[in-house]
Design a protein around this nucleic acid. Structure first.
Lengths: 149, 149
DNA sequence: ATAGACCTTAAAGTATACTTGAAGTCAAGT
DNA sequence: ACTTGACTTCAAGTATACTTTAAGGTCTAT
């Protein structure tokens, strides 16, 4: 099955203009052309685009993704390096999730804070609460907030 | 305790130039000045900066954070709206974490893929593996990759 | 063969969030 | 008083990743 750039754009949920931009930036060296010059994507290309999108979501820049695609084009000789790259991205995403977990805790603390302030009718009342009057699961975030990071 | 912009920058781990930029953009309407015109941050300001950083990490733009700081400056009248904002950010971060979880699964599949390819000496060998030859915990990601999103 | 949808390239424009540089001022120690 | 480091503002520069526009070519159906 072959797809034009617009069809592939719909299939992977990325604008056609972005696919053209990626091609221009050397991220899609594998894409074939029709006799008239139109890009013809295959199902294997769709798979590659999914990987590109995954790498982007992991925090890689266009430049770094290009370097990866160049490795992929080298074939089996670069397996070791590609493995190292995916392990690094895996670890980076785990770190991002841990960071988001801390952000989430602070947001949950703030939700509790404003829920309580709404009931009390003022923020000041919540600020004056002592440690024991704060739900145990909110105390860590509260301390981070008041005692610096 | 009072801090200059450089001291506060070190305390919260944000460049002084960024703090000045935030001030210029209206994110820090609360910061006082010395007689000579220098910014003087308090511990309460540090707390506000931690919240600003948290909102930024949750995906809010400078413009949106400014709107929030304006609400905060309104006082208790905006408690309800601020609660709504924090709930929305909390939900957004939970969604981000769920998305990262999917990204992580694909990265973990790719790690397995290249580990296996390294042992086999070629990618093609791994590609030819049938579903049952793939570890159960990697199958979902593999299917997403080959059958489209 | 012709219409119309969709494609092509190149270049310029946009958005966001800073960062840097220049010229000058402030604050603290000796 | 003077030096030194850190501060001030304003304007311009940077980085990244697209998006848009213009002029024109391709593909498919009728």
């Amino acid at each position: 099955m072959l797809y034009t750039v617009g069809e592939m754009a719909r299939a992977v949920g990325i604008p056609a203009s972005t696919l053209r931009y990626y091609d221009q930036e050397g991220l899609l060296p594998f894409v074939e052309r029709s006799r008239g010059g139109m890009r013809m994507f295959t199902d294997k290309d769709r798979e590659a685009l999914t990987v590109i999108d995954c790498l982007k979501k992991s925090g890689l820049s266009i430049r770094e993704i290009r370097a990866f695609m160049a490795m992929a084009a080298e074939g089996d000789a670069s397996i070791e390096r590609r493995l190292a790259l995916f392990r690094a991205r895996r670890d980076a995403v785990r770190q991002q999730m841990a960071d988001l977990e801390r952000t989430l805790e602070l947001l949950e603390y703030k939700c509790w804070y404003y829920e309580t302030a709404r009931q009390a009718g003022s923020e000041e009342a919540v600020r004056r609460l002592s440690e024991e009057q704060v739900p145990p699961e909110r105390r860590a975030a509260r301390r981070r907030l008041s005692c610096g990071e």
